[in-house]
Design a protein around this nucleic acid. Structure first.
Length: 412
DNA sequence: TCTGGGGTCCTAGGACCC
DNA sequence: TCTGGGGTCCTAGGACCC
């Protein structure tokens, strides 16, 4: 544990860079990394926020996650491009292939970030030389750039990769934290978000250094587990391992902002059932079953309400999940216009070691399972929208003949 | 001015049991 | 009559991340 050799590789402006590279490959003449440009959602569907920005857009004050509308006001010539997640997954995999040349100990932390543990993999090479080699190889072979953070643990490596960008290697060893990390505002520390910053400010904690030197017991009293974690992090302490195991999902859900607010419970229910169908489909694709269904509603004043319920058995069956969701919704009040409807399934486990509930109706389950499979196969062959569960269910479920028109969902 | 979607983890309070 | 403490499970909501 003493002297680990950890790298954090972070793609610079990932979505924007990947789209830029793709456009160039397809004959587009402008490199959108060099102009005021962003990757954004769909304004008409009220999902118009900035997902990634070019350095030029950044100079105009455009920030990630703000409404495109704001961004355009700050930067009138802003060019907006739509994200392409199939492309992003592909580019992410290309990057991973390069990293694998150096070690098997890689943790894919998100689509555009990975940790690498090179302890024992280096031979007589120096860690920092490998960092530069990775950075240069990625640029040469893939056409986009990365930052690489170098340290003894994941937290410091991640903090390091966040220093000056793009296309840079930075070290942040324990004996450097006082100079390089402590002067930074506390908001820069990984894990300290915008709700915590004002609380720390009230305690006169403004920099990471202030946090590091603050009395740990007092932090624990005020913030619980989080207090201990923050104090450790500010002091560069992090024992967490680079985890190579492929994580199975713990929950699966969709939430959809509606293009117009929903007023009646019937409207909400219709949308909820569509979402349930897609969530159940994804659950089965993972070969998992769920025990809990949770429904979230967001009002037009941005208040979130969620309710959850046990299904009573472990299942991936669309009908059961819809039944449970309807029962949850029936207990919720719709007092204000609803802007967003979300549904997630929770307490997941693997399909093949499912415990049968005491009163399980096994025969019925099998029939339902068969129906789901027929629907799933059709979806896989002809596209998600080719068939919906509702149409297969017959008369009593007439209501759920959903007109599913999400054009963004194209199965290959 | 209007504010996404996918997740994970933590906490606090209530119900229930011994 | 009113009285305990510990443990577990469940739920709603909050905070954070990319």
């Amino acid at each position: 544990m003493e002297d680990r050799k950890i790298l954090h590789v972070d793609v610079n402006n990932a979505f924007l860079s990947w789209t830029a590279v793709d456009l160039l490959r397809n004959g587009y003449e402008i490199d959108i990394r060099t102009i005021p440009a962003i990757i954004g959602g769909d304004e008409e569907r009220r999902s118009g926020i900035v997902l990634a920005k070019s350095p030029v857009a950044k100079k105009f004050g455009v920030v990630t996650a703000e409404p495109i509308y704001f961004a355009k006001q700050k930067c009138p010539n802003l060019q907006v491009f739509q994200g392409n997640f199939t492309l992003y997954r592909k580019e992410s995999n290309n990057l991973y292939e390069i990293l694998k040349r150096y070690t098997d100990k890689i943790e894919r932390f998100s689509i555009d970030e990975s940790f690498m543990d090179l302890t024992g993999y280096l031979g007589d090479k120096k860690l920092i030389d490998i960092a530069y080699e990775i950075k240069d190889t990625v640029e040469r072979e893939l056409g986009f750039t990365v930052n690489v953070g170098v340290s003894q643990n994941k937290l410091l490596a991640k903090m390091a990769s966040d220093f000056e960008k793009p296309n840079k290697v930075h070290t942040l060893y324990l004996d450097e934290i006082e100079d390089k990390m402590w002067p930074l505002p506390v908001s820069e520390l990984f894990g300290v978000g915008k709700k915590t910053v004002p609380k720390l400010f009230n305690m006169r904690i403004k920099t990471i250094g202030d946090l590091a030197k603050y009395d740990e017991e007092k932090l624990i009293k005020r913030f619980g587990k989080m207090g201990k974690w923050m104090h450790d992090a500010a002091n560069g302490i992090d024992d967490s391992e680079v985890s190579t195991k492929i994580e199975r999902p713990k929950s699966i859900g969709n939430q959809v902002t509606q293009s117009k607010d929903l007023i009646t419970k019937d409207q909400v229910e219709d949308v909820m059932c569509q979402i349930a169908e897609e969530v159940a489909f994804r659950l089965r694709r993972e070969k998992m079953v769920a025990e809990v269904v949770a429904v979230t509603l967001r009002t037009n004043t941005f208040k979130d309400y969620s309710h959850q319920k046990k299904i009573g058995t472990q299942t991936s069956n669309t009908k059961k999940i819809i039944e449970c969701a309807r029962s949850i919704l029936s207990e919720m009040e719709i007092k204000e216009p609803i802007r967003l409807v979300g549904l997630r399934v929770d307490n997941l486990s693997e399909e093949n070691n499912t415990q049968l509930s005491f009163f399980s109706e096994i025969e019925n389950d099998e029939k339902l399972g068969k129906l789901d499979k027929v629907v799933d196969d059709l979806k896989s062959k002809f596209g998600y929208t080719s068939v919906t569960y509702g149409r297969m269910l017959g008369e009593q479920d007439e209501k759920y003949k959903i007109k599913y028109t999400n054009k963004n969902y194209k199965k290959k």
